[in-house]
Amino acid sequence: MTTFYFEWWFLPKLAQGLVLTVEITAACIAFGFVLGVLLALGRVYGPKLISIPCSIYIHFFRGTPLLTQLFIVYFGLPNWGIHLSAFTSGILALGLNTAAYQAEYFRGAIQAVKGGQMLAARSLGMSRIQAIRYVILPQAFRIVIPSWSNELILMLKYSSIVFSISLLDLMGMGKRIAARYFNYFEVFIVVALFYLVLVFLLSQSLRWLERRVRVPGLGAPGLR
C-alpha cells in the first residue's frame, strides 16, 4: 500500500510557480503575436527579399524541437557573448517558436480574406498599408481566432519545458517539491490540475473574445 503525502504549504509554493507560468506564457504569446503578424505579412505581401527570409525563419522554427531551441538560446548564446537570464531565455525561445506557428495561422487567415476586399479598399484610394490595416487584418484576426486559440493553449502547456533551464514555473516548482519529498504522484496530480484550470480559463476567455468580435459572414464555418 502506497502512502499519500501532501501538505497544505505546497499549495502557495505551487501557486508561485503558476504565476511564473502565466507570466512566461503571456509574454511569449504577445511577443510571438507581434513577430508572427510581421512574418505573415512579409510572406504574403513582401517582395522576395523579405518573403524568402520569412519562410526560412518559419521553416526553421517549425522544423526543430522547441527544447533544442531553448537550449540554443540559454546554453548556446553565452558562447557568443550573449548572456540572458533563464527567465528571458525562456520567453525568447518560446516566443520565437510560437511566432513561426502563429505566422502560419495568420498567413492562412490573410489568404482566406476574399481578393475583392483589397481591390475595393484600393479603389477608394487607400494605400496598400491602409488596406491591410483597416480591411485585411481586422478580417484575418476574426478568421484566425479558432486556430490561434489552439496555439495559445499549446504554448501554455509547452511553457512547462522551462523547468529544464532551472526556472521554478508550475512544473519546475512541482519537480523541486517532489524531488525533496519523493511524492511525485501527489504533487504532479496537483500540478496537472493547476494546468487544467489554466487551460480552462484561457479557452473560456478566447471563446468570449471570439463571440465578442464575431461578425455575421466571417469566421470559421459552424462556429457562427
Binding site: 476586399q117 479598399a121 480591411v135 478580417q139 476574426r142
Partner: peptide
C-alpha cells in the same frame, strides 16, 4: 460586380 463590401 460582386459588391466587395467590407465584410467586417
Amino acid at each position: 460586380q460582386d459588391f466587395n463590401l467590407f465584410t467586417h
